[in-house]
């Protein structure tokens, strides 16, 4: 029971955090709230019996993401957002999609359901045979590194791609990009 209560309380905190991220105009404060938001998510993952995901979220989401956001703020030196306007079409779209989602959610198996097909499918095999077939007691690791190891290879490729892209964008190149852009404009406007 304590799980369920904790779960609901954390979710309510999370929602508050999301709303304040949306509305706060001070960007540095937003970065802090963003870190907190990730930390709360990590806590929720722990409550929902997913410690590996919680570790990753705490390290990657709370740590790296927040640091990156702070670094961006520090480099650009911008701290305030302009006063936002209410965007009616977006509001309408969100209400519509949200309503549709709630309707779909009623058909979903309730939280923690024993009969859910997800638990009966491939996962059952992993839990029952995983240790025997891979020799790893942590089933998440077994699936990550062995059964679905190719996904993990893909994940490495994603990080590599991201790294190359960031390097391409921000590396110390001899030609300053801004100078180059200015030259280009002069040519086209002639």
């Amino acid at each position: 029971m304590i799980d369920v209560v904790l779960n609901i309380v954390l979710l309510l905190f999370l929602l508050t955090m999301a709303v304040s991220i949306l509305f706060i105009r001070h960007l540095m404060a937003m970065a802090m709230l963003f870190g907190l938001y990730s930390l709360l998510t990590a806590a929720l993952f722990l409550v929902l019996d997913a410690p590996d995901v919680a570790f990753t979220e705490a390290a990657v989401g709370t740590g790296i993401s927040t640091v990156l956001m702070l670094a961006t703020l520090a480099i650009t030196g911008i701290h305030k957002e302009k006063r936002p306007k209410i965007h009616l079409p977006a509001l309408l779209l969100c209400t519509l999609v949200g309503g549709l989602l709630v309707v779909i959610s009623l058909d979903l198996p309730p939280l923690g359901d024993e009969q859910s097909p997800a638990l009966q499918g491939v996962a059952k095999h992993y839990l029952e045979k995983g240790k025997e077939e891979t020799g790893v007691p942590n089933v998440v690791t077994a699936v990550l590194a062995s059964y679905r190891g190719f996904d993990t290879l893909g994940e490495v490729a994603v990080i590599f791609t991201g790294g190359v892209c960031v390097l391409m964008l921000l590396g110390h190149w001899r030609q300053k990009p801004s100078v180059k852009v200015k030259n280009k404009i002069r040519i086209t406007s002639r």
């Binding site: 679905r148 996904d151 893909g154 994940e155 994603v158 791609t161 991201g162």
Partner: peptide
């Protein structure tokens, strides 16, 4: 899900 991973690889490379 593997499809999703490769979708993200190609997309990320494209953004760059």
């Amino acid at each position: 899900f593997n499809l999703f991973v490769f979708l993200e690889i190609s997309s990320l490379a494209t953004y760059g």
